[in-house]
């Protein structure tokens, strides 16, 4: 594999790993917040897909990646409104509604793509990159890890901000209580429905943002079904991360790195069946997170609608 160790190739692999991991990170962080508050957001994939579509449309028509991100987040949030209204307010089954959201989002975005873009397939220019001073000069790592779109750095900062929020703030405590002891939270004078609603809207925004990043930076184009299960992987990451945002980031990074490794192994001409190579990202993430997260506890009220006074 000696010939693999050229700087451009290694840079490309690292860059690709970060780009592939970013949508999972954002979606996983969002799902984690929902789950902490007791809402199982199975429709994460649908929220990502809507975010990918709205994000792409906004970026394409405005020429601004930031407007694209905003539109993507709002698209995801709008989709999450369905969960808010039907599951949190009306107490309908979260799994059924979640599946319906994903299927509906697939159909809706496919239809919209068909009407708007199926003959023209517009594509965006390369996303603007911010190279971090000093770090950008580190060989290989500088261009692979520290020369990315600004959203990447903001997402990493968000990981630490959420960690702090869950650990040290009243809001973090309220979210956790909404998932574990909603009646106690209610007795303490905090509105459980409002707390869960806030969490679900934030989930929608983050999932939509992840979708917008996938479409605008990862692909530069929107096509139907383009999330390809990223939302499901986001749910798995959130569940295995034991409520810790940092572990979601570790899982997303591992997944991205493993995807890059599959390309490296193939390009290196390693004689392993492609199916085995392609299993690598899923196997690595599952193995690592299961080992480190085997004591994980899901919130006791996860997936259960809350009605005041009901036992």
């Amino acid at each position: 594999m000696g010939g693999l160790l050229t700087e451009p190739f290694l840079v490309s692999l690292l860059y690709g790993a970060v780009t592939a991991g970013m949508p999972l990170l954002l979606a996983g962080l969002g799902e984690q917040m929902s789950e902490k508050a007791g809402v199982l957001n199975i429709g994460l994939e649908g929220m990502m897909l809507v975010g990918a579509y709205t994000g792409f449309v906004a970026a394409y028509h405005s020429g601004s990646f930031w407007l694209g991100y905003l539109a993507g987040g709002l698209g995801g949030m709008l989709t999450a409104l369905i969960v808010l209204l039907l599951c949190i307010r009306r107490g309908l089954n979260q799994i059924v509604i979640g599946i319906a959201i994903t299927v509906g989002a697939e159909g809706l975005t496919s239809l919209l793509h068909y009407v708007q873009f199926s003959r023209s397939y517009p594509r965006l220019a390369a996303a603007p990159v911010l190279a971090l001073p000093l770090l950008r000069d580190v060989p290989v790592l500088g261009r692979g890890l520290f020369s990315h779109n600004l959203l990447v750095y903001l997402a990493v900062a968000l990981v630490f901000a959420l960690s702090w929020m869950y650990r040290s703030t009243y809001l973090g405590l309220s979210l956790e209580a909404a998932g574990n002891q909603p009646a106690a939270l209610d007795a303490a004078g905090v509105d459980v429905v409002h707390t869960r609603s806030l969490a679900v809207l934030c989930t929608g925004f983050l999932a939509g943002l992840g979708g917008a990043y996938l479409a605008n930076v990862g692909a530069g184009i929107f096509v139907p079904f383009m999330t390809g299960g990223a939302g499901v992987i986001g749910i798995v990451l959130a569940m295995l991360a034991r409520g810790r945002p940092l572990m979601v980031m570790v899982g997303a990074a591992l997944f991205g790195a493993s995807l890059a490794m599959t390309t490296a192994l193939q390009v290196a001409g390693i004689d392993i069946p492609t199916d085995v190579v392609q299993m690598l990202p899923f196997a690595v993430v599952m193995a690592v997170l299961v080992v480190f997260g085997r004591h994980s506890m899901l919130p006791s009220a996860l997936g259960t609608p809350y009605t005041r006074g009901e036992r």
Binding site: F9, S12, A219
Partner: peptide, 20 residues
């Protein structure tokens, strides 16, 4: 595996082979 609609994957892998 069956990445028929994986545009992001297509771009990522192609950028890698171009870099190679």
């Amino acid at each position: 595996p069956a990445a028929y609609a994986d545009v992001a994957g297509g771009r990522r892998v192609t950028e890698s082979v171009i870099s190679a």
